[in-house]
């Protein structure tokens, strides 16, 4: 997909500026049980349905200064909650409560496999948003399953979120030029790959218990 050069309040997920950006739907499926790193997760989730979110709506844009990625999906967690409730007031402190969450992953080079979340010498960068008070925005690195750790920093990553009915709307943003030395390189004319994952908190989805896109999606930034 192409991230067009647009103007407008792109950092706002509800902004009308987003109507000018092309829409891509990415099909998600349950992450394979066999890839769960613990015997416990493999056996306890064998009979539990997970990866409930199957469709992620994606838009991308830049304005010459920053890159914006807008993600939207219908959340079974939000469907289950009171529609009148303030989307950001739901208590998540309970020991059995997990947040709705979304992540996008970028490979650093051609050796980084999607299934294994990169490997030694080929890290992947992961941007993650999770609902909550406060909501969580993380810039992470991984070099294989179970290796997630904070990225070096300096990327200037942020996220803004909103909700409409049962749908979450999240915009990730980052300055096009950033000090971080790991990819993705997000500059006008550059291209990269992306993959996605969504966790449904109400279904206790977390870690490898998620829905994910099985293929990389191409992203090119308009000059």
């Amino acid at each position: 997909m192409e991230a067009k050069r647009l103007t407008g309040a792109l950092s706002d997920p509800g902004a009308s500026a987003w109507a000018q950006a092309a829409v891509e739907h990415v099909a998600l499926s349950s992450a394979p049980l066999a890839d769960q790193p613990s015997r416990y997760a493999r056996s306890s989730w064998a009979d539990r349905r997970y990866g409930l979110v199957r469709d992620l709506r994606i838009q991308a844009a830049h304005d010459g200064e920053s890159f914006y990625l807008r993600l939207e999906w219908s959340s079974p967690t939000r469907e289950a909650r009171d529609a009148q409730e303030n989307p950001f007031s739901h208590p998540l402190e309970g020991p059995d409560a997990f947040p709705d969450s979304v992540a996008v992953m970028f490979p650093s080079n051609g050796d980084a496999q999607l299934e294994t979340k990169g490997c030694e010498g080929a890290p992947v960068e992961i941007w993650r948003w999770a609902e909550g008070m406060p909501e969580v925005v993380e810039d992470l690195l991984a070099t294989g399953l179970g290796t997630l750790r904070p990225a070096d920093g300096g990327s200037g990553l942020w996220a803004r979120s909103g909700a409409k009915g049962s749908r979450w709307q999240v915009v990730f943003g980052r300055p096009l030029a950033c000090e971080q030395d790991t990819p993705p390189r997000l500059a006008p004319g550059a291209s990269t790959l992306m993959a996605f994952a969504v966790w449904t908190g109400a279904n206790q989805e977390r870690a490898g218990i998620k829905s994910y896109s099985q293929r990389w999606l191409d992203l090119a930034l308009e000059r």
Binding site: R39, Y40, S43, S44, D47, E93, G94, P95, D96, Q204
Partner: peptide, 13 residues
């Protein structure tokens, strides 16, 4: 063989 477990809720604690 691991036995699936229940995550206790705040009320159960």
């Amino acid at each position: 063989v691991p036995v699936p477990g229940h995550l206790p809720s705040r009320e159960e604690f």
